[in-house]
Design a protein around this nucleic acid. Sequence first.
DNA 1: GATGATGGGTATATAAACTATACGAATTTT
DNA 2: AAAATTCGTATAGTTTATATACCCATCATC
Lengths: 285, 285
Amino acid sequence: MRWGVEKRLEFIEFRLFWEGGINRADIVDQFGVSVPQASKDLTLYEEKAPGNLIYDKSAKRYKAADDFKPVFMQPNASTYLAHLRETNGGASGVTEAWLASAPEHDALPIPHRRVEADVLRDVLKAIREGHSIEVFYQSMSAKKPSPEWRRISPHALGNDGLRWHIRAFCHIDHKFKDFILSRCMKTRKQGLSGASANDDKLWHDRFVVALAPNPALSESQRSIIAQDYEMTNGRTEVMVRKALLYYFLKRLRLDVADKLDNPHEVPVVVANRAAFDAALAEAMA
Amino acid sequence: MRWGVEKRLEFIEFRLFWEGGINRADIVDQFGVSVPQASKDLTLYEEKAPGNLIYDKSAKRYKAADDFKPVFMQPNASTYLAHLRETNGGASGVTEAWLASAPEHDALPIPHRRVEADVLRDVLKAIREGHSIEVFYQSMSAKKPSPEWRRISPHALGNDGLRWHIRAFCHIDHKFKDFILSRCMKTRKQGLSGASANDDKLWHDRFVVALAPNPALSESQRSIIAQDYEMTNGRTEVMVRKALLYYFLKRLRLDVADKLDNPHEVPVVVANRAAFDAALAEAMA
DNA sequence: GATGATGGGTATATAAACTATACGAATTTT
DNA sequence: AAAATTCGTATAGTTTATATACCCATCATC
């Protein structure tokens, strides 16, 4: 079966599962095929996935059968929700509007300067080809009130939950650091790499964070949290790169749990705190 | 031009821009077309976007010209980064692997129970068709140590930055509330809606949060933050639904800024704090 | 400096996919 | 009862893609 046909069948199934029904017109709109072709696609889908399709004459619409069994996709809530989130942001670029009758929804607005496509493209190239590059970077350091050109040897990208960083060797400070992608305004001439990606110990080393339900919670609440995090024996372990450990602490509000927050707002605490603090100190050095 | 052809040209352009080069083999792998067809596609691309394509005989690979000008897509860093993030999570479902030579990357792991696809599907249906539904829900309330069936009339989905909520009228408490999607284990019989979506005042009302650079920062740092957030006159305004206001506070760590964090970790503070607190109190009532 | 492997281009005949157009049937709206 | 909508399907013709074949350039290896 050709790629285009396969995609259309996948689309039919996606709509059936997530939105409950589909039309010839939906297919025509999405793929720009003719009406007879859309008919054929629906017939073909019925052939490949017998019993999934029921035509509701009254609604003039195909509906998913009660015992609907997907064959062209694995229904995955995360995927659907990711699509939904993209819908929000607008400007989708490559992605299609697979979601027609999306529910009303909203995500927390995270205000931020946007990343320049050309900058990202050049950084990706430097990572791929293993060379250094100069970025016109706005540091937060008090000594550097205006942006300046800095040579870096990038080797990876990291996301701290709110924004993306470039993980790179800094040719000025002679060590590996994070550079916030949105603070890179321009790039210019490439050069030789200043360090091997393998030498970035904090990036490659991971610390195993042990999380346990907040002891300030009642026993029944703790057991709920244990289920929520799919814990075994009241523990769950999360591998976190040492370079991301600090952000992990902040994002999950693990630092304020016992001080400020209502216990039920901080569901989990770090169980191996001593080791965690040691690893964090190492990462911050 | 047919949809399939268009997609392949878009793919060629995507790879050229973000990964710097493309091969016949890439097209064959991605779309399952024959080798001669991939050749024709590349020729066609050159026709439609003259000058973008340069064949590097030595690397045996088409490369993007220096003055590459995309015609089939708008290069958008957010889109690329969203793709990258999906790569991390695995289990992509519908999305394709447009990224071949993705850079090394990692996102902060956010541990959580996964959402059941069937539950989400049923909730979406209830929202779409405007009826109520029973969910087997694990509340955090101390009075309800084990999950129980609750009838809700959902009307929207909300994301607090870490997880998705159902925004719904609760038939037990007779008010609109958030239900954490991953804590809904099962669903069962539909019923009549208990309230109109329009009556959810906290969902529809938005509060305009005024953000300003943290005054604890130096002047030069404040101006950097102002650029970062694309502020005008040292202010930026963010519209936040009152139902999400509390999460906004927590997620941006606006509550701990002055108490716990190093100023340069909390770049912005709320400028209209009195009004903010009033709106928050209203939302929490 | 011949040899083979690899990656690209192209020609031909054939097959599959798709369009345009047309017409008929079932159902709902007016 | 008439009009509109949505489906299905048939026909003839076009476009797209395949399979197969053969040629060319570059590069690594012997």
